[in-house]
Amino acid sequence: MRRLNIFSILLLFLITTTTGFSQNGYRESALSWQKQAKDTRKAVVGVLEELEKIGDKGNPDAKGLIEDTKKWLEEGDNALSKADKEIEKEDYEKASYDYNMAWQYYVKAATAGLNAKRVLTGQ
């Protein structure tokens, strides 16, 4: 459980360091959102790995929340992959929006993962 708490703190840091549209245009914004989305993804994957180690302990609520975490992670990955292709084509505006969307999906995954942790541990 200690590792889960560490991932929570990491998530907190990642969401603190939000970025966004920059005066210098979409390129900087896209790169910034890319970093944040990828960093947040790492933290979510960490939470998920820990949850999978613990297992849902037969708790249907935890099971549902873990499934949600995976689903949001997958949605985030789809958006991330779309954005990666867009950035390769130097379509920074679309990439910026899609990295942002990926990040939003990862935040949703984090919410579900943290709720699963609360259900399993009470903390």
């Binding site: 966004g20 914004s29 942002n100």
Partner: peptide
């Protein structure tokens, strides 16, 4: 950001458009 969405036309959804700025 004054986002108005348009996900159905391949535009960024409001939730992404409306959270671009810090």
């Amino acid at each position: 950001e004054m986002a108005t969405g348009g996900i159905e036309e391949g535009k960024p959804p409001i939730e992404a458009g409306a959270s671009q700025r810090d």
